[in-house]
């Protein structure tokens, strides 16, 4: 038995971290403007509070623990934006602030900071908030209704799962993002724009997103769900390109990434089809996060000269 404990690997040195973080932030900007267009000015407040809370939490932790102050690397800003993206559009701002604190303080810094966290901070924070404030976290509003107490509207996944009496948005609406859902998850078009940019800059690779989305599509085909709706609804695009590909919490090798993507796809599908919640992207990525060390262990090439076990 090999009992050595490996820390999560740093993929990149600190010099390039800033650049990569800048690319990621830049790639999220189209979706960010899209969300303001679809859900109104209130989401700007949500995003700002989320970023401020994340950065301040990081600063607070690093001061408390007398660590080097590293809030300038941009990672907390990305966590802040991504967290805001997975919250409902009319979420009370104090919940957003708690979410930012949880994501950074509990999930990232307590585990050792950038590069050491086991779970995706933004998604873990969302999972905790969903368990804690189920009423506020499942109140989705109608797109293009800018008033502060906008009309509530079921998400497409909820309509499909519970078969309630509400009109599904057309596929075109789903594609451009004119549907109810979390702040940053609705516009497939704008998210893909950002994703293509990241792929071109080689910040992310195609392995996880493609295997993830294909798995969901194939399972949908076999169970008489409409694959096009399954792909464009919920947080699948956002999750597959921007969350599942997080360096720290995804496998290193190509083979590992594909296993990771397929695993996410299967769990997402299972939760959507039979689970208690209509959406499973968040939990599937978090679940697969726990398997990353195992996947790495079996897919990393053997060291030269190391013995077979």
């Amino acid at each position: 038995m090999n009992n050595k404990i490996y820390c999560s690997p740093h993929i990149h040195g600190s010099e390039t971290t800033g650049k990569i973080m800048f690319y990621v932030i830049f790639s999220l900007i189209p979706a960010l403007f899209g969300s303001i267009y679809f859900f109104g000015f209130y989401v700007v407040k949500v995003i700002l509070i989320s970023i401020i809370s994340s950065v301040l939490s990081e600063l607070l932790f690093q001061i408390l623990m007398k660590k080097e102050i590293r809030i300038y690397d941009g990672s907390a800003i990305i966590t802040g934006i991504l967290l805001a993206f997975v919250l409902p559009p009319r979420i009370p701002l104090w919940i957003v602030a708690i979410g930012g604190f949880l994501a950074i303080f509990l999930v990232k810094e307590l585990f050792g900071g950038l590069g050491f966290n086991i779970f995706n901070p933004a998604l873990t924070a969302r999972a905790i908030l969903l368990a804690s404030y189920p009423v506020e976290m499942t109140k989705f509003t109608k797109p293009l209704d800018y008033s502060i107490d906008a009309i509530t509207s079921a998400t497409p996944l909820f309509i499909m799962k519970e078969k309630i009496n509400e009109q599904l948005p057309s596929l075109w609406q789903m594609f451009i993002g004119n549907r109810s859902g979390c702040i940053g998850e609705t516009s497939v078009l704008l998210l893909l724009l950002g994703a293509i940019f990241l792929l071109l800059k080689r910040v992310i690779t195609w392995h996880i997103p493609v295997s993830y989305i294909l798995t969901v599509a194939i399972f949908s085909l076999f169970t008489n769900e409409n694959p096009a709706y399954q792909i464009t609804s919920g947080g699948l695009i956002l999750g597959a390109f921007f969350m599942a590909t997080d360096y720290v919490t995804s496998p290193i090798t190509k083979k590992g990434k594909i296993i990771f993507g397929i695993g996410c796809g299967i769990i997402t599908f299972l939760i959507r089809r039979w689970g208690g919640y209509p959406e499973g992207v968040c939990y599937s990525i978090l679940f697969m996060n726990t398997l990353v060390p195992l996947i790495n262990k079996y897919t990393l090439p053997k060291k030269f000269g190391s013995k077979n076990e």
Binding site: M65, K66, I98, L106, L110, I128, A131, S132, Y133, P134
Partner: peptide, 29 residues
Amino acid sequence: PFLIMIMPPGAFLVIGLLIALKQRIEKGG
């Protein structure tokens, strides 16, 4: 109320934080 605290995950969170705190006090980080 921050409901997760009275759910099972809350217990894990609090125990984990307390263990970390004890380690911190004894080893000084």
